[in-house]
Write a protein that binds this DNA or RNA. Structure first.
Length: 208
DNA sequence: GACCAGGCACATC
DNA sequence: GATGTGCATGGT
């Protein structure tokens, strides 16, 4: 994929804080819609911890409206801000001074941050070696008969991390390339019946 | 007009 | 534990 597409320069964002906001806003949402929401926040001068911590939740919802699910996402952004200020006084560097295991566990306790969002934050905002698994990862690699759609997030993550060097830049590029390829070639949800690789047994075992 | 997009929490059985 | 549902905009 790298030979075909080249470097993807992920995550698209100017600062770790912007990357974190984008990670929450892009949940089940087209990135172009997220860009509009981020643009609104930028214009309002709110794309920084202090600004987002102070804004009213309903006003925030209005600004991020284009990203969809705007009420629930406003709540999730505010939940992260509460977490950031409660534990780290609003200082991202302080948050990223924790080790991978500590910070991942803490992030997952924030309502609205699940495994993919947590790992996106860790990898792309914090430069931790956390492999990100998303819908495209499942779709593409299940079509290649390398894994099943039914495998859990962590089973899939473990599979990739067990077979790849622990390398932040590799994880960064790999996930970005998966998304790039998925957007261009794997847009439909139903399994590709024509895929010649479907007969290959799943190396992770059956019945999961 | 239907379908989809870089998930997640929560209710119900 | 598994299965189902709400959340919502904008592009194809």
């Amino acid at each position: 994929m790298f030979e075909a597409y080249g470097p993807q320069h992920w995550w698209p964002g100017d600062s770790p804080f912007e990357i974190i906001m984008g990670a929450i806003l892009t949940q089940n949402t087209n990135w172009t819609n997220v860009e509009k929401a981020i643009s609104n926040l930028k214009e309002a001068g709110l794309l920084n911890p202090r600004g987002l911590n102070h804004i009213d939740k309903d006003q925030l919802a209005e600004l991020i409206r284009p990203s969809g699910y705007f009420n629930i996402k406003a709540k999730r952004l505010k939940a992260f801000m509460a977490f950031l200020f409660r534990h780290f006084k609003g200082d991202l560097d302080a948050m990223f001074s924790l080790n991978l295991t500590e910070i991942r566990k803490a992030l997952l306790e924030v309502k609205g941050i699940g495994p993919e969002t947590a790992d996106s934050i860790l990898l792309y905002a914090g430069n931790y070696p956390a492999f990100v698994v998303d819908a495209y990862t499942k779709r593409i690699f299940s079509r290649l008969a390398i894994l099943h759609e039914e495998h859990t997030y962590h089973q899939i993550q473990d599979y990739f991390m067990a077979h790849l060097e622990e390398d932040v830049q590799l994880y960064n590029e790999y996930h970005a390339l998966i998304v790039r390829h998925g957007k261009e070639h794997c847009k439909t949800k139903p399994l590709c019946k024509e895929c010649p690789l479907l007969d290959i047994p799943c190396p992770m075992g059956q019945g999961m």
